[in-house]
């Protein structure tokens, strides 16, 4: 019997296979290369500006030297904390309804569908919505409006992970608790939540990661502020919009600060992503 190599048809198939698999390797390298290039640019442009001043001083006026991003960083932390503080409980409760009380109801499948749409809805649309629903009635840009816009983005993320994680909790756990006479709400809070804790935290972390880099919904809800302000009813400085304004300006000092801010924000978001993933996978392996 002749070896299959001698068959020209087989050789052709092997060549096609080799070519296709080579292209798959190439695609992977292509994908990873972007990550390396973007992170490389961030580090090389942002690292020189990293210093204690960045955290200690406020954003400088144009055409000056020095300064930092303290007000923007604090503002961003505040907006994110309030946004998640409003959005996460609503998302948790909604996800709880879908997985526990209304698991087989029609309402749940409708909500799941709508939630998935909201999950991928363009964030600038959320900004427009909050502008119309909060900024115009309140008569001006405000920190509250920005935090609400972030909350609207947080809700679908948390709803999705909460429902998924609670569905993973085995039913015998709930049945055992019910058999001991525990009312439904306590079964959920004391048993189901506890069993799904890591997953629920993962969802909230992912939501924090998602909103901390959001720029578009803040552009016309909080605007930005050159100065230190903790007043939620007025404009508040925040990192994404500060980066957006500084990077579009010819002032080299502003540009340097923008790159440092970009480095900070990216690494914060990526660490949150990785932390959420590690937490999520340690749960799944159990």
């Amino acid at each position: 019997m002749s070896p299959p190599k001698a068959n020209p048809y087989y050789a052709g198939r092997k060549r096609i296979n080799l070519l296709a698999m080579g292209l798959c390797y190439g695609a992977t390298v292509f994908g990873l290369a972007w990550l390396v290039m973007i992170l490389g640019t961030l580090v090389s442009n942002g690292l020189p500006g990293l210093s204690l001043d960045l955290l200690a001083q406020n954003t400088p006026p144009p055409n000056s030297t020095g300064g930092g991003l303290a007000n923007a960083i604090v503002g961003s932390l505040m907006l994110t904390a309030i946004g998640v503080g409003i959005g996460a409980p609503i998302g948790l409760l909604a996800g709880t309804y879908m997985a526990e009380y209304g698991r087989h109801s029609k309402l749940t499948s409708v909500i799941r569908f709508i939630n998935d749409i909201l999950l991928s809805a363009p964030s600038i649309i959320i900004g427009l919505f909050v502008y119309g629903a909060v900024v115009v009635p309140m008569g001006g840009f405000s920190g509250i409006a920005g935090a609400l816009a972030l909350a609207v983005i947080v809700i679908p993320v948390v709803v999705r992970t909460t429902e998924d994680m609670l569905l993973l909790v085995p039913n015998p756990l709930r049945e055992a608790a019910s058999a001991l006479g525990l009312p439904r709400s306590l079964v959920i809070r004391r048993v189901a939540y506890r069993a799904a804790k890591a997953g629920l935290v993962t969802g909230v972390l992912l939501a924090v990661a998602r909103v901390s880099g959001e720029t578009a919904p803040l552009l016309f809800t909080v605007l930005n502020n050159q100065f230190w302000s903790l007043d939620l009813t007025g404009s508040i400085a925040n990192l994404p919009v500060t980066i957006n304004n500084f990077v579009n300006n010819p002032d080299p000092n502003w540009k340097k600060l923008a790159w440092s801010g970009a480095l900070l924000i990216t690494f914060a978001v990526l660490s949150l992503n990785i932390a959420a993933r590690v937490l999520g996978s340690s749960r799944n392996e159990k």
Binding site: F129, G132, P156, S185
Partner: peptide, 27 residues
């Protein structure tokens, strides 16, 4: 507590629908 918790979660779930409706109406 049971009734309260259930209505709380249901309200939160329905608020997701209200949110979508609100976005469309506001736009």
């Amino acid at each position: 507590g049971d009734v309260l918790f259930e209505s709380l979660t249901r309200t939160a779930a329905i608020s997701v629908l209200v949110l979508l409706g609100g976005i469309i109406i506001s736009l």
